[in-house]
Design a protein around this nucleic acid. Structure first.
Lengths: 212, 212
DNA sequence: GTCTATAGAAGGATAGAC
DNA sequence: GTCTATCCTTCTATAGAC
């Protein structure tokens, strides 16, 4: 079921010292959990098992450390190619598989935390919203639009702007469930996720299937 | 165009002293702009033109002040009855008017700020997400579902669960534009908003119009 | 209720030894 | 690079005068 969920790419240089790695891990956890303002450098150093001086030897400031964390996190995303298959026999089941993979990915603790932190701090760090969007939702949206255009070319979808259709399919997927998850309300059960995906696909295909 | 946007209800007791009012206004602005952790009580007192001691005479703690601000803000919402008209001649134009009013409301600075702050702090203050959802998205969703059921009863919509349809219509409205707005990316232009609403209504009606 | 003044803790950042 | 110890600022919250 979650087989493809393991296919997550994270672009990390990994030419880093062990201590630097510990600092990044600890800072990532704390920033994701509590946001920028409520996370202290003391707490990060303590959690990483290093002194503050060591931390400041690797990062010039708390802001720089935060920016590094978030930008790295924004480059962690679904392997788009594995979720949008090339050879499609049945469009409905392809949409269902893709929708389930994507929604499960979006509802992960880590993904929700990134979205929360970026939403919270994008006023203080204006480039953050852009980095997140371009590496996450925007990237997937473009790939999905291109994929839908190929389906359209194969006669499986009616005429129309597939960029809009992509946005709308993602909107249908996120409808309700995802909003409630970002607000920290009850984590959706597996069955609820599947139902949302199925409803999204049904509605999407009723609206975008070619007229017969 | 924005005529109905003025119909916003804010439930405030208003049996408050002038200083208390000043404190609430200043704290609201600062918390909305910078979040909880980055807003200091000093800054609030300064902006309100009172001393910190006065502030603490009205509110027992920074947390209590924050909770008051946010809970008040959550009770500021669209006057649902004005956006969901009773007598509907043309469903398409009713959906368009409602969609435009709602999307314009959601894209206001104030509404975006509340959503951002609640998203950011709902882990630290778990009851916040619930209060926001129940007074905002959840409230409107229920009203919209009931409204859609009446349209369904009048034969203007096909059979199906109108709670799901309501979530999906809201998802279509928020598709793309709203996500980008919450991330602080370019504020959408009037024309872009209208286009999004129109596309949402078109897709929704293609999927939910009664089969002929 | 409102102020000034301050306590006491915690914040980010650094000096200097190793 | 890494540590301990510390600087200075800012934080939340309160005491005491009016």
């Amino acid at each position: 079921m979650y087989a493809r969920m393991s296919e997550i790419t994270t672009a990390s240089p990994d030419t880093e010292s062990p201590k630097r790695h510990d600092i990044l891990c600890a800072a990532g956890d704390l920033f994701m959990r509590s946001g920028y303002g409520e996370t202290s450098v003391d707490a990060i150093a303590r959690a990483a098992g290093v002194s503050k001086a060591t931390l400041y030897a690797h990062f010039p400031s708390k802001e720089a450390l935060f920016a590094t964390i978030i930008h790295d996190a924004c480059r962690t995303h679904l392997a788009v190619t594995s979720v949008l298959p090339e050879g499609v026999a049945d469009l409905r089941s392809a949409l269902r598989g893709m929708g389930r993979d994507l929604l499960n990915f979006l509802l992960q603790d880590r993904a929700l935390a990134i979205h929360r932190v970026v939403t919270a701090e994008c006023q203080r760090f204006p480039e953050l919203g852009r980095a997140f969007y371009d590496n996450g939702p925007g990237l997937f949206r473009r790939a999905l639009a291109a994929w839908l255009e190929r389906q359209q070319g194969a006669g499986r979808l009616r005429a129309g702007d597939m960029a809009v259709a992509a946005d709308q399919f993602l909107g249908l997927l996120r409808s309700g469930l995802y909003l409630r998850a970002t607000l920290g309300l009850a984590r959706p059960a597996e069955a609820e996720i599947d139902a949302t995906v199925q409803e999204a696909v049904d509605t999407f295909l009723r609206a975008f299937a070619p007229p017969d």
